[in-house]
Simulated assay, not measured.
Amino acid sequence: MTSEALESTSTPQPAADLPATDVAAYWAERRNYLERIRKVPELRRRYWRAAGIYLLRRLLWSFGFFPIFLIFWLPLVFSSFNPVVMVGDLLPLLHDFVNSNPEIQANTLSTLTIAWLSVGFFFLVFDFVLTPFQSPYQYEADVYMRSWEQLNHDRLPDKV
C-alpha cells in the first residue's frame, strides 16, 4: 500500500468533503424534531419561563447593578479609594442640592435619571450581545440529535 492510500483510509473526512445528502438529512431531522417539540405544552411553558428569567436577569444587571456600581466606583476612584475623602467631597454637593430651589432640584433629578437610563441601556445592549438567549428547544434538539447520530452512526460519515 502506498502512503497516500494509508493516509486516506486513516484520516477522517474533513467537513467540507461531506456529501450534501448526509448533512441535509441531519438538518432535516433536526428541523422536523424542532417542529414536533414546539407543540409540547411543557416545553412551551419552559421556553417562556426561560425567556422571562433571561430578560429579567439582563434588566436587573443592566439597570440595577452596573449603574449603582458606577455611582459608587467612580467617586471612590476619584477620591483615591479613601471613603472619608469621597464623603467629604460629596457632602457639599448634597448640601447645595438640598438648599437649591425646586426647579434646579427637578433639573438635577432628571439629569440623573437620564444618566441612569443611558448607562443601563448601554450595558443592556452589550449584555444581550455577550450573553445570548439559550432556548430550551435548541437544548432539547441538541440532546435528541446526539442520540440520533449514535443510532445512525453506521450510515453517517465521521463528522456531521
Rank of each mutant, 00 (worst) to 15 (best):
L55N: 08
Q138E: 15
S3T: 14
Q105N: 06
L112P: 01
S62V: 03
L59S: 09
M1C: 07
V98T: 05
P102G: 04
D89A: 06
W48V: 02
N152Q: 12
R38A: 12
V160S: 01
A106V: 03
M145H: 05
E103C: 00
L59V: 12
L56N: 08
Y139D: 13
N107Q: 10
P12H: 08
P102D: 03
V125H: 05
F78I: 02
Q134T: 10
D96I: 01
F78V: 00
A115N: 04
F121T: 08
A28N: 11
R38P: 02
T21P: 00
F128N: 13
F65E: 03
P75G: 07
R30Q: 09
P136K: 09
Q105R: 14
E140N: 11
I68M: 14
T21A: 14
S100L: 00
D127S: 15
D142N: 15
V85C: 00
R146C: 08
S110F: 04
D127N: 15
Q105C: 01
V40S: 11
N107R: 09
A20H: 10
L76Q: 05
K39D: 07
Y144R: 14
L56I: 02
S147Y: 11
W73F: 15
L60H: 07
A28E: 13
Y144A: 11
Q134P: 00
P136R: 09
F72I: 04
R44D: 09
E29N: 11
S3E: 15
A50V: 01
F78E: 11
A106E: 12
L76G: 00
N107D: 07
T21S: 13
F63H: 04
